[in-house]
Every structure is written in C-alpha cells, then in structure tokens.
Amino acid sequence: MQPTRRDERDQIRPDADGALVRRPIDPQRLLAAVASPEAGANVLFVGTARGFTNGVETTGLEYEAHDSMATEALERLCTAAVDRFSLLACAVEHRLGRVAIGEAAVGIAASAAHRRAAFEAAEWLMERIKREVPIWKCEEWADGRRAWVHAEPAAAARGGDAGHERGDGPVDAGRRRSRGRGRRR
C-alpha cells in the first residue's frame, strides 16, 4: 500500500506493495502511512469477515480480484478521495485469498485537518470500493457450501446513484455502459 498524499498525487506508481495484499492487513501501518503534522483527524476503517449474516453462519471468506484493474481502481479512488475531501493523505488495502472470521478484509485510513472530511472520505471510499472495484468475495458456510457473491444490480446502481454519492453522477455497477469509468477523476 502506497499512501496517496496531496503533494505526491502525480507520483503514485503501482509497486510490489500495492493496495491488494495476500497477508494480514496491519491497521497501525495504514494509520502510520497517512500521518501528517497538518492532520487533526485520522480515521481508520477496518472491514472484518463477519461470522453471521442474517442468522446464517459463515466460516470464512475468500477474495479474488482482477489484479491490475482493481489496483488501478483503488489508486484512482484514493486520488479522487484526496481531491474531493481535501484529505492530507489516504491509504487503502484489500486482502485477497482466504480471510478467517474476525480478520480484516479491507482497511482504509484517511487523514485531514478536521474530522468531518476524514470520516466522510472513509465512508465514501468504502461505498465506491464495494460498488465498482473488480474484487469478488466467496462465502463459505458452516454446512460446507460455498458461493461467490454476485448481487443482483440494486435499483440504485441501475438508475444511477441513490443519494450515497455527493453529486458524482451515476455510478455504474459494472454494466455495459461503463466505458470511461476508469477515467473519472
């Protein structure tokens, strides 16, 4: 994970330690990556593998991604978040492979002068990650079955945004009319 900083936005390059990781996510490392003497607020979001969903027990998760497209999308979202919320820095990691219950699947850190921007940025990033980054989750259940999660497109995703976004225009959830999505900045 390479943090995106206001003054370095144009120097971001994918490297071996990109936003997709196959090791445990280290929240402290994410926070440290966005540290800034100008920061008055540092928000850390850690999404963990949940053991129960609607009463059904999940025993583990597995994630896979289109590596290059997902890495690029995560970097682009970080850059967009820094611009949009005037962050000082932001960093994102998403784990691939098997994730045990309770372990982190995704981590987001955002630093800003004041808390509102940092909180909003973390929430916005999480929404975007779930909706448009080519990463997939496979749920493994207590009864031994497993299934990849490919949600039916929500009404919101089909008809544009439903108020989650702040004037972004329609967010396409990966349908055919999505050409150029990767260029949004």
Partner: peptide, 10 residues
C-alpha cells in the same frame, strides 16, 4: 479480454 461479474469486495 476480461469478463467481470458483479463485484462484491469490501
């Protein structure tokens, strides 16, 4: 060419 089903990261 990559075929990308509906995403479910996070």
């Amino acid at each position: 060419v990559a075929i990308l089903p509906p995403v479910s990261g996070g």
